[in-house]
Each structure stands twice: as C-alpha cells, then as structure tokens.
C-alpha cells in the first residue's frame, strides 16, 4: 500500500464533511482514523478524550474484527457498534482504508447515525479517491515530489533525541 499523503485542500474537505456529519447526526464526536491507527481528522468535543489512544484502539478493534470476518469467510464486517450506558460508538469502514468513528449519546439514535454516516461515507470516499490519484500522479512524476525529508541530516535526527 502506498504511503498516505494528505494535502491542505482535501484535508479541509474532510474536516468539513466531519463537521457536517457531527451536526447532522447530533453526535458528540466524529473522527477519522486510518487502518493503522493514525488519526486523520476529528470534530466535536474532544476535550478530555485521549484521541491518540482512541485511534489506536479503534484500529485494533477493526483489525481484530476483520480477522474474525476472514475466519468465517466474510470479506469484512463494515459496521461495528458498541452500546454503552451513556455513550455509544459507531464504527464504519470507508473506501476500505479509513475508519469513521461516531460517538453519540441519547440525544441521537443509532438509526439517525447510520443514515448520516452513509451519506458522509460516500462523500469521504470521493475525497479519498482524489487523494490516492493525486499521490499516484505525484509519485509517477519522478523527482518532482519534494519530500520534506529529502534533506534531513544525521544531526536533525540526533537532535530529536538530545533531551
């Protein structure tokens, strides 16, 4: 799988889609994680939430469920839902490579969340298609892709550990 490279334009689009989903579904938090557990974007009341851990555990959860699906001959379980006393988590796969997570309480409902997630997923899918095409185009234009790390020196790396 190619590295995921995110540019400003698509990032803004994604943030917009998430913001709309959060208000349309009346949920508390909406966030997007890649399958490896890296958070891509989030919207909502993230205060008091450990976003990094949330991202990594979500990815672990999806990976384990994927493994279960394969064991019984399914391609994937595209939706995971965890119901709590107050808060619930709705997890779904988008474009087979990113994970959309919605956290909501009694002010919303599973039905509403599912409905809104479906619409948002379609939009996100389109955005990710663009991201993948862009990355592929950049990569094929050999030498044109300026990695910010092309000029990294040993001193730069050492300085990361200087404390």
């Amino acid at each position: 799988m190619a590295d995921l490279v995110m540019y400003e334009e698509e990032y803004e689009q994604i943030k917009e889609i998430l913001a709309r989903l959060q208000s349309d579904s009346n949920s508390k938090i909406v966030f997007l994680v890649d399958k490896n557990g890296q958070q891509i974007a989030a919207h909502g009341d993230m205060q008091g939430v450990d976003a990094t851990s949330l991202a990594s555990l979500t990815a672990g959860n999806v990976a384990a469920t994927d493994g279960l699906a394969k064991l019984i001959g399914e391609k994937e379980f595209s939706i995971l839902f965890h119901e709590g006393e107050r808060d619930n988590i709705h997890i779904s796969l988008v474009a087979q490579r990113v994970i959309l997570v919605v956290i909501f309480d009694e002010r919303s409902s599973l039905g509403l969340v599912r409905l809104r997630v479906k619409k948002a997923s379609q939009e996100l899918e389109k955005t990710f298609e663009v991201i993948v095409t862009k990355a592929a185009a950049e990569q094929s234009r050999e030498g044109r892709f300026e990695s910010p790390f092309a000029e990294i020196t040993d001193e730069d790396i050492d300085s990361l550990f200087s404390e």
Binding site: M1, A2, D3, L4, V5, M6, Y7, E8, Y11, E12, D34, N36, G37, Q38, I40, P148, F149
Partner: peptide, 15 residues
C-alpha cells in the same frame, strides 16, 4: 505505512 499530513505538518511512523 508512514502517514505524512502536509496540512497539519505532521508525520506519523509505526514501530
């Protein structure tokens, strides 16, 4: 798979 986020100027690596 490294994740380079140009928008947020972040790079994430998994070890």
């Amino acid at each position: 798979m490294t994740f380079i986020n140009y928008a947020a100027r972040e790079i994430n690596c998994k070890i």
